[in-house]
């Protein structure tokens, strides 16, 4: 009984922290400055938030077939979400969307020059 309680507590903790991560990621998607910065916010949803929520569900899963599917979803997200983010970054770069850059510690953030 003791072990089950500990596992449940860890699962709840993981779900809670994951929910916070997802919220912060979406907040970053809304608050940060330009497309390239917002990608880092979306990255939190894809890695920290999704990973912790899936880990919490994994601990609460009733059956090994369910666990296998959760692990597969995690692996699939770990493979596809960085690829999609990279594809968006690359497409934006090719389309000529200039990132806001901070070139020296004292300078303000400004539109970057081309490569």
């Amino acid at each position: 009984m003791m072990v089950e309680n500990i596992v449940t507590v860890i699962a709840i903790f993981s779900l809670g922290v994951g929910s916070l991560g997802v919220l912060f990621g979406a907040l970053g998607l809304l608050r940060l400055g330009d497309v390239y910065q917002r990608m880092h916010g979306a990255g939190i949803i894809d890695t920290g938030g999704a990973g912790l929520i899936l880990f919490g569900l994994l601990l609460a899963s009733p059956d090994w077939t369910v666990s296998v599917r959760l692990v597969l979803i995690g692996l699939l997200l770990a493979l596809t979400s960085p690829t999609a983010t990279h594809a968006i970054a690359r497409a934006a770069h090719f389309a000529g969307v200039k990132p806001l850059l901070k070139t020296s510690p004292d300078a303000p953030i400004e539109k970057g020059a081309d490569e």
């Binding site: 991560g21 912060f24 907040l27 970053g28 608050r31 940060l32 400055g33 330009d34 390239y36 910065q37 880092h40 916010g41 990255g43 939190i44 890695t47 920290g48 990973g51 990132p99 806001l100 850059l101 901070k102 510690p105 953030i109 970057g112 490569e115």
Partner: peptide, 26 residues
């Protein structure tokens, strides 16, 4: 990689709380 992801998640959340800290670089 999981440890690296957790560390950098915290770093990005810090920037999201205070967006003025962002100093984007290529």
């Amino acid at each position: 990689i999981i440890w690296e992801i957790l560390k950098s998640n915290l770093g990005v959340i810090r920037v999201i709380i205070a967006p003025s800290k962002a100093a984007p670089q290529l």
